[in-house]
Simulated scan of single mutants.
Amino acid sequence: MQSKAIFGGKVGRSNYKDIARRAGVGTATVERVLNGRGGVRPELVEKVVAAARSLNYPRVLPDAHRGLLRIDVLMVRPETTFYRRLSKAFERIAATLDPLVVVHRRFAEEMNPQDIARHIAAADVPRAGLILAVPNSPLIRSAVEKVVAQGVPVVHVVTRASEDGVDFVGIDNYAAGRTAAHFISRMARAEGPVVALCHPIYQVHRDRIRGFSEYFRDRPGSIGFEWLGFTRDEEHFGAESLSIALEKYPDLVGLYNAGGANAALIEVLRRHSRGKDILFIGHELTDYTRSALREGIMDVVLDQAPEAQAQRALDIVLRRVGLTAVEPDRNPIRFITITAESL
Rank of each mutant, 00 (worst) to 15 (best):
H182T: 12
P250N: 14
E234T: 01
H104T: 08
P126M: 06
T96W: 12
L279P: 00
L68P: 00
A310H: 05
A180K: 09
T324M: 05
Y16E: 15
R219E: 01
L314N: 05
D124E: 13
R274N: 15
R210C: 09
P193H: 01
L97V: 07
S14P: 03
V321M: 09
R160I: 06
G275M: 07
V195S: 01
R312Q: 12
I6P: 11
A20E: 02
D251T: 09
N331I: 00
P200Q: 02
G165H: 04
I297S: 08
I93L: 15
A190F: 12
A188H: 09
G322P: 05
G165Q: 07
F225A: 06
R141Q: 11
L279I: 14
D277S: 10
V144K: 01
P113H: 12
E284F: 06
E341L: 15
H156W: 07
E235K: 02
R206Q: 03
R206L: 05
A28S: 11
N331P: 14
L132K: 08
L132N: 09
H199N: 09
S142A: 13
V301A: 09
A190V: 06
H272V: 11
P193N: 01
H205E: 00
V300D: 02
S243H: 04
Q304P: 00
K10D: 11
R319L: 08
S273E: 13
G254S: 11
R290Y: 00
W227Y: 10
L285D: 01
N331Y: 07
V102I: 15
Y83W: 15
H156A: 13
D164L: 15
P42T: 14
F212P: 12
R37T: 10
K17S: 15
Q203A: 10
Q114H: 08
I19P: 03
W227C: 07
V73P: 00
T231W: 01
E226M: 08
A313M: 06
E46Q: 09
E163K: 00
R85F: 12
Y215N: 10
A313H: 03
L132F: 09
I201F: 07
I266Q: 02
L323K: 00
R178D: 05
R118Y: 15
H199W: 06
N173A: 05
I336K: 07
A196C: 10
